[in-house]
Amino acid sequence: MKNKRLNLALWSGLLLSIFAFLSYFLIFVWFPPMRDLPLANLALFALAILLLFLGVRRAFRRDQLLRSKVAASVAASLGVLILAAFIFTFYISGRALPRSNGAPHVGQKAPEFTLTDTNNRGVTLAELLSSSQDGKPPRGVLLIFYRGYW
């Protein structure tokens, strides 16, 4: 008997692996604990891979069509590739940052600079440290260097 019913485990496994990938960048990246340690995404991937495994096992039972076996192999490979892409993005390309050994250390004076504000006015670090905010000079300045949007 040929079994032509939809291989639910297989396709939901593939969809879930796509969701596991996208949800990090669309959802979890906004929640610091899940952004810093993507356990939610890795758990979703674990479930996706389990479903894909069950789907493949089903497709390779003796009475299945060749077509189902090919589809299952492709879907499972895609799922594994998506997991690999996630691991690469988070753990490899995410860590490809310069060492910055020469960055100012705790206890050192921060190097002076003059930069341009959004009104095209020059602003120095000394001004940022001394000019008043809410009527009094700040107790500290937090410099946030970011990659930018170009």
Binding site: S130, L142, R147, W150
Partner: peptide, 15 residues
């Protein structure tokens, strides 16, 4: 470009 980094300075400009 800049790598991401944050520095908290006190009012004397010390990190």
């Amino acid at each position: 470009i800049s790598r991401p980094a944050e520095f908290l300075l006190d009012s004397s400009g010390t990190v």
